[in-house]
């Protein structure tokens, strides 16, 4: 059986994921948005790890917190940084 502490970690992660996605969408500065998206992806990866999906957690950690934010950051760099 899982201890109470571990379950609290999972609930905190779930809350952080939802909060992260909403916070990313309300940012006016798109670079900040990219950073938040990266952390949200990392949170998802940790949650996957807690839910026993080790392989998926690795993939999500790489894609969700490095490659995808990287691609979005390139796009922001090539267009404009603030929302009009």
């Amino acid at each position: 059986m899982m201890g109470v502490l571990e379950i609290i970690i999972e609930f905190v992660l779930m809350f952080a994921i939802i909060a992260g996605s909403i916070m990313a969408l309300v940012q006016k500065d798109l670079m900040k948005m990219v950073v938040i998206i990266g952390f949200q992806g990392l949170g998802l990866a940790l949650l996957y790890q807690r839910l026993l999906a080790a392989d998926v957690a690795i993939t999500q950690a790489i894609l969700g917190s490095a490659l995808i934010p990287g691609l979005i950051a390139i796009t922001v760099f090539k267009t404009r940084r603030s929302e009009e």
């Binding site: 392989d55 957690a57 690795i58 993939t59 790489i62 894609l63 490095a66 490659l67």
Partner: peptide, 14 residues
């Protein structure tokens, strides 16, 4: 072990 083609490939891409 956990891992595979996707993971390895995307790590090298990073």
């Amino acid at each position: 072990t956990p891992g595979g083609g996707f993971q390895g490939g995307s790590v090298i891409a990073t």
